[in-house]
Amino acid sequence: MAKDLSAKDIERAKFVFSIYDFEGNGTVDAYDLGSCLRSLSLVPTEKVVEKLGGQKKKGQKKLKVDEFLPLYAECKKDKDIGNVEDFTEVLKLYDKNENGMMYYDELKHILQTLGEKLEPTEVEEIVKDCAEAPDDEGLTTYTLFLKKLMAGPYPGDED
């Protein structure tokens, strides 16, 4: 198994694995690898999931729990996910008046086009949940948006 995981980590990982074992045969489709990892409170990008062996189409590869646990351990070690301060520095580039505000539509555009691309429906859901409605000038507070976005909730936070 994965030597870097605690007994509790292994227990949680096996439980999540069992949930995604839709056929009940002790395997999980590699297409669901990212979902499994995210269910364990991790935030891998699609690129990381692909690097770990995740597939873009169902039925191409199956993972057994003994194959999944090392992938979980590897992903769990990756701490390079950024924080509120890092993302604030990036969004300051779009703060024309240097007052903590940016155009709401520009925020949506950034989410949809930079980094790992999001679908328009995903962007709409994120800004609806995390951003303040734009003011009369079309501006929103990006620091509040980032704090809400980074705060979660994430699966497993209730532990």
Results as ranks from 00 to 15, higher is better:
residue 2 A to G: 07
residue 2 A to W: 08
residue 3 K to D: 12
residue 5 L to F: 01
residue 7 A to F: 06
residue 10 I to V: 15
residue 12 R to C: 10
residue 13 A to V: 05
residue 14 K to R: 13
residue 16 V to H: 02
residue 17 F to G: 00
residue 18 S to M: 11
residue 18 S to A: 13
residue 19 I to A: 12
residue 20 Y to S: 06
residue 21 D to M: 04
residue 22 F to C: 04
residue 23 E to V: 09
residue 23 E to L: 06
residue 23 E to A: 12
residue 24 G to F: 06
residue 27 T to C: 01
residue 30 A to S: 06
residue 30 A to Q: 01
residue 30 A to K: 00
residue 31 Y to I: 00
residue 33 L to D: 00
residue 33 L to G: 00
residue 33 L to W: 02
residue 34 G to E: 09
residue 34 G to Y: 12
residue 36 C to E: 02
residue 38 R to A: 08
residue 39 S to R: 05
residue 39 S to D: 10
residue 40 L to D: 05
residue 41 S to Q: 15
residue 41 S to V: 11
residue 42 L to R: 07
residue 42 L to W: 08
residue 42 L to H: 07
residue 43 V to A: 13
residue 43 V to D: 11
residue 44 P to A: 02
residue 47 K to P: 00
residue 48 V to A: 12
residue 50 E to T: 15
residue 51 K to I: 14
residue 52 L to Y: 09
residue 55 Q to K: 15
residue 57 K to T: 13
residue 58 K to E: 13
residue 58 K to H: 12
residue 59 G to K: 10
residue 61 K to E: 09
residue 62 K to M: 11
residue 62 K to A: 11
residue 63 L to F: 15
residue 63 L to Q: 04
residue 64 K to Y: 10
residue 65 V to G: 01
residue 65 V to E: 11
residue 66 D to H: 13
residue 69 L to E: 10
residue 70 P to L: 10
residue 71 L to H: 04
residue 71 L to F: 04
residue 72 Y to H: 05
residue 73 A to S: 09
residue 75 C to G: 05
residue 76 K to T: 06
residue 77 K to T: 08
residue 77 K to D: 05
residue 77 K to Q: 13
residue 77 K to R: 12
residue 79 K to E: 14
residue 80 D to L: 06
residue 84 V to S: 08
residue 84 V to Y: 01
residue 85 E to Y: 07
residue 89 E to H: 07
residue 89 E to P: 00
residue 90 V to T: 15
residue 92 K to E: 11
residue 95 D to Y: 09
residue 97 N to C: 09
residue 101 M to Q: 15
residue 102 M to Y: 01
residue 104 Y to M: 08
residue 104 Y to G: 05
residue 104 Y to F: 15
residue 106 E to G: 10
residue 107 L to C: 03
residue 107 L to D: 03
residue 111 L to I: 04
residue 113 T to N: 12
residue 114 L to C: 14
residue 114 L to N: 07
residue 115 G to P: 02
residue 116 E to C: 01
residue 117 K to M: 11
residue 118 L to G: 05
residue 119 E to W: 00
residue 119 E to L: 12
residue 121 T to D: 13
residue 121 T to L: 08
residue 121 T to W: 05
residue 122 E to S: 03
residue 123 V to C: 02
residue 125 E to R: 09
residue 128 K to V: 03
residue 130 C to H: 05
residue 131 A to K: 06
residue 132 E to R: 06
residue 133 A to Y: 01
residue 134 P to T: 11
residue 135 D to V: 03
residue 136 D to K: 13
residue 136 D to C: 02
residue 136 D to A: 12
residue 137 E to M: 06
residue 137 E to P: 00
residue 139 L to R: 12
residue 139 L to Q: 13
residue 140 T to W: 05
residue 141 T to G: 09
residue 141 T to D: 15
residue 142 Y to T: 04
residue 142 Y to L: 03
residue 147 K to V: 03
residue 147 K to L: 01
residue 149 L to F: 15
residue 149 L to A: 09
residue 149 L to P: 00
residue 151 A to W: 04
residue 154 Y to D: 04
residue 154 Y to T: 10
residue 155 P to N: 13
residue 158 E to W: 01
residue 158 E to L: 07
residue 159 D to I: 10
residue 159 D to Q: 10
